[in-house]
């Protein structure tokens, strides 16, 4: 089953074309890693997939579970099972992490025609997932990401993912800045969700993450295009040789 199909995708931000024809197919059950130099468009791609305002798609299509999603609002995409782990998670003072997550989970459940979770069940779920991500209870009652360290913010992203159980997770540099222990915790959270009917796209700069979350495919995004694809060994090659080697060897 095809989870996501991106074809000839062009997108601009503030009048600058950033994505210049991206093609990518992700089947159910697969994990894809996207690597590439700074400013190559990785986060732009992630934001376009999730429907952020200000990112204008000028050409191409994005199909998710056989539906064209480009005209959908971010919340509709989320309700259908798309999740974005932010490279820079946003702080929201005055809205507690727990409240936020409950509002999100119940929005998804309502969309799926399920009953809203009551307070007791929700608390049980949150406790279990927080333990999985080794997240302090104290952080749960704080404002969303407010006063969180960099590592805590990243773990909070995966914690939210663990609670919301998306079909397609797009994780934008969730490993950046993590120490090795935190990296293992985050990887464990991602692996726990691995299932034949779920897929993950991981944006990363570091091959190290891929030792813990083993990808089915590795792609190189450069200057708004996927210029090379391979298996997990490509990540090792990139680590050893850098990106300039891809540009010269380019295969697309």
């Amino acid at each position: 089953m095809t989870m996501l199909k991106i074809e000839g995708l062009h997108a601009s931000v503030a009048g600058n074309e950033i994505l210049k024809g991206v093609d990518l197919t992700v089947n159910a059950g697969e994990i894809h890693a996207i690597m590439g130099p700074n400013g190559s468009g990785k986060s732009t791609l992630a934001h376009v997939l999730c429907g952020r305002d200000g990112y204008e798609v000028t050409q191409g299509s994005v199909t998710y579970l056989d539906e064209d999603i480009l005209e959908m609002s971010p919340e509709d995409r989320a309700c259908r099972g798309i999740f974005l782990g932010f490279q820079y998670p946003v702080e929201i003072p005055g809205v507690s992490n727990t409240y936020f997550l409950k509002a999100a989970l119940n929005a998804l459940r309502t969309y799926r025609g399920e009953e809203e979770l009551d307070a007791v069940d929700f608390l049980g779920l949150v406790k279990a997932k927080a333990k999985l991500l080794q997240l302090d209870n104290d952080l749960l009652s704080r404002g969303v990401n407010v006063g969180f360290s960099g590592g805590e913010k990243k773990r909070n992203e995966i914690f939210q993912m663990a609670v919301l159980e998306p079909r397609l997770a797009v994780l934008d540099e969730t490993d950046s800045g993590l120490d090795i222990d935190a990296l293992k915790v985050v990887a464990n959270g991602v692996n726990k969700l691995r299932a034949p009917d779920r897929s993950t796209i991981i944006v990363t700069h570091y091959q190290r993450l891929l030792d813990y979350i083993v990808p089915d495919f590795v792609h190189v995004l450069q200057d708004g295009r996927i210029v090379k694809s391979g298996d997990k060994n490509l990540a090792h090659e990139l680590e050893a040789k850098g990106y300039s080697w891809v540009a010269t060897a380019g295969n697309s």
Partner: peptide, 21 residues
Amino acid sequence: FYMRSRGIDEKTARNLLTYAF
């Protein structure tokens, strides 16, 4: 956008942020 990307509809997200303020 952060709230909407989690499934919270725009109106609710606006209201929540307003209330938080």
